[in-house]
Design a protein around this nucleic acid. Structure first.
Length: 592
RNA sequence: GGGGUCGUAGUUCAGUUGGUUAGAACGCUGGCCUGUCACGUCAGAGGUCGCGGGUUCGAGUCCCGUCGGCCCCGCCA
């Protein structure tokens, strides 16, 4: 680039204090307005927009050149900063008090007509925007999101550095592990028939770094999981990962609360109340039906089993007989607004999560209106109203099923109602810890126990001697999640630091000694060579960035995200490998 | 693996009960224009109606299949 056009300022900073200075600006043409005799160009860079003026009376040649300029051209301009004439100040621009009279101009690059302009108000389909991501990334929204994402990681590095953490990189080419998500596999040319796996998280390495005496480790690191995508899930995503030695939950909470509070304070100017509230897992499930409850509104779940036990409504009776639950939500003052259609919609929500149906009672001023009312004795109904605190105008909705279905269905009905009736105060921050997770969950399909968090999570001390099949259902883990506005933004645990415990854990998970040795030998070895007590947590950076920026999708805070089919529309990845590569890797396809 | 939804000009959309030459806005190209900032104004170009098959005298429209985007269930320790 010609030194003549080395920038003196960027496009967002010139104000009346710069008047009469000669400046050089570079950027993209945001808008060109050609008045024939006079040409205005709004020059854009990521800092802002400056209006430059090409006037043949100032410089005939520059004005002539400017006639060939088009939107999105990349140019450099030089000229004098002048105040705008009386009445011509543009209050919408930070630089609106001034304009630059150009006497020299260079076109660095022309452009094909772009499929869309990053600055036009019209919404463009995401597929087109993803294909031309470099254009979309020029938009105000994505610029803001990526800058804000960087602001978050900067705070993380500063806070953790201050707290004595060091950033240690861990391998991307590593070992496939059983359990958890599907791995992305990478074939090894030097070791035919062998594969690396991309890390689902640096979990084991960070534990081993604790054995290595690193004391406090963190990393902002890519993780890979070959599972189906969602609005808040990408196959490669970024964790803020950290681990500490010689700590318990309390110390980790304290550190994390400082970290999260600093992020909120510095990035969005919100100060959070500390300490953060703590919900036990079971309480979260009972009250909200979810282990990631949105605590910004009430509408809590009520157990009505006692009130309806013995009723003639077969659905309820049978569910209770077979050990299930009957639970309800009281939707306050909704008999008018909750139409038949709206109730049907809520029933559909319930069915999505496995419920067979949804019963309801509208509490009208002088009567109860419901298809199921006839199955209940008056005493039961009185009890029901009392338990749910129902008053005239309220609607009760019921789900009767297994505990899991009841929780899932009511949790999602609750969210749907919360949105429908605007019960969610968007100005609030609903942040909470969820603790005391079950250690195991039962995998019905394979009829075995699986680790709810991961197999390296420590049981509570009082459960250490109960690590067997008989107790498995009741054991609880020293695990914790951090939940923000109904989203899980982080999770972690105190880890097992003794080999005997880890071996028992594997055994209960159905991982035999041989398999454990083969898959996790290195961890078991490390645990025998002086592993300190340790624990940590990992946060979903993308999710945090999404929530803080108000983005609709995790894709909007990732520079080059993938589609729901895990492809990149810009690079066309993944794509077929050529025959030579496959031969070197000794790979052949079985297309049967 | 399953459910939903969308696909028409570069872009965003409209397109009636299946009917003859598929429209609008923005963008683009050219002309005019010295105070615009979503400049204005006049003119113009621009279509594999995602793709394939079927029904029909006739398909953007109906049917089947398929590809792709998005949302959801399952899955995601």
């Amino acid at each position: 680039m010609s030194l003549d056009f080395r920038r003196t300022h960027h496009c967002g900073e010139l104000t009346d204090v710069h008047i009469d200075q000669t400046v050089t600006l570079c950027g993209w043409i945001h808008t060109r307005r050609d008045h024939g005799g006079l040409i205005f160009v709004d020059l854009w860079d990521k800092h802002g927009i400056t209006q430059v003026v090409l006037n043949p009376q100032i410089d005939k040649l520059a004005h002539q050149q400017a006639q060939s300029l088009r939107n999105n051209y990349v140019i450099g301009v030089r000229g004098a900063v002048r105040p705008r004439p009386e009445g011509m100040v543009n209050t919408k621009l930070r630089t609106g008090q001034i304009e630059v009279y150009i006497d020299d101009l260079i076109i660095f690059n022309k452009t094909k007509t772009p499929p869309f302009s990053p600055w036009e108000a019209q919404e463009v389909s995401e597929a087109i925007r993803l294909k031309h991501r470099y254009l979309d990334l020029r938009s105000d929204e994505l610029q803001k999101n990526l800058h804000q994402r960087y602001a978050i990681t900067r705070v993380v590095r500063n806070v953790l550095d201050r707290q004595g953490f060091i950033d240690v990189e861990t391998p991307m080419l590593t070992k496939s592990t059983p359990e958890g998500a599907r791995d992305y596999l990478v074939p090894s040319r030097l070791n035919p028939m062998c594969f690396y796996a991309l890390p689902q998280s640096p979990q084991l390495f960070k534990q081993i770094l604790m054995v290595a005496g690193m004391d406090r480790y963190f990393q902002i690191v890519k993780c890979f999981r070959d599972e189906d995508l969602r609005q808040d899930r990408q196959p490669e995503f970024t964790q803020i990962d950290l681990e500490m030695s010689f700590v318990d939950e309390g110390q980790i909470f304290e550190l994390v609360e400082e970290l999260i509070s600093e992020i909120f304070r510095q990035v969005v100017g919100i100060s959070l109340e500390r300490p953060f509230p703590v919900l036990k897992y079971q309480e979260a499930i009972d009250r909200f039906g979810s282990d990631k409850p949105d605590t910004r509104f009430g509408l809590e779940i009520v157990d009505v089993a006692d009130a309806v036990r013995g009723c003639d409504f077969k659905v309820f009776a049978q569910v209770l007989e077979s050990g299930g639950q009957v639970r309800a939500l009281n939707i306050k003052q909704s008999t008018e607004t909750l139409s038949r259609k709206a109730l049907d919609d809520l029933t559909e929500v319930a069915k999505t999560y496995g419920a067979k149906g949804m019963a309801w009672i509208k509490v009208q001023p002088n009567e109860l209106q419901s298809p199921i009312i006839k199955f209940f004795k008056q005493e039961m109904l009185d009890n029901l109203l009392k338990k749910t605190g129902a008053e005239p105008g309220d609607t009760l909705v019921f789900i009767a099923d297994t505990p899991k279905v009841v929780a899932d269905a009511l949790a999602n009905i609750r969210l749907a109602v919360g949105r429908k009736f605007n019960l969610i105060d968007e100005s609030k921050i609903g942040i909470t810890w969820v603790t005391e997770f079950p250690l195991f969950e039962h995998d019905a399909a394979e009829n075995r126990w699986a680790a709810m968090h991961h197999p390296f999570t420590a049981p509570r001390d009082q459960d250490l001697d109960k690590l067997d099949e008989a107790h498995a259902a009741h054991l609880r883990a020293r695990a914790y999640d951090l939940v923000l506005n109904g989203n899980e933004i982080g999770g972690g645990s105190i880890r097992i630091h003794q080999m005997e415990v880890q071996e028992k854990m594997f055994q209960l998970l159905g991982i035999g000694p041989e398999e454990a040795r083969q898959k996790f030998g290195f961890l078991l070895d490390a645990l025998q060579f002086g592993a300190p007590p340790h624990g940590g947590i990992a946060f979903g950076l993308d999710r945090i960035a999404m929530l803080l920026s108000g983005a609709a999708s995790i894709r909007d805070v990732i520079a080059f995200p993938k589609t729901q089919k895990a492809t990149c529309l810009m690079t066309q990845a993944p794509s077929e490998a050529d025959a030579r590569q496959l031969k070197e890797l000794r790979l052949k396809f079985d297309l049967s």
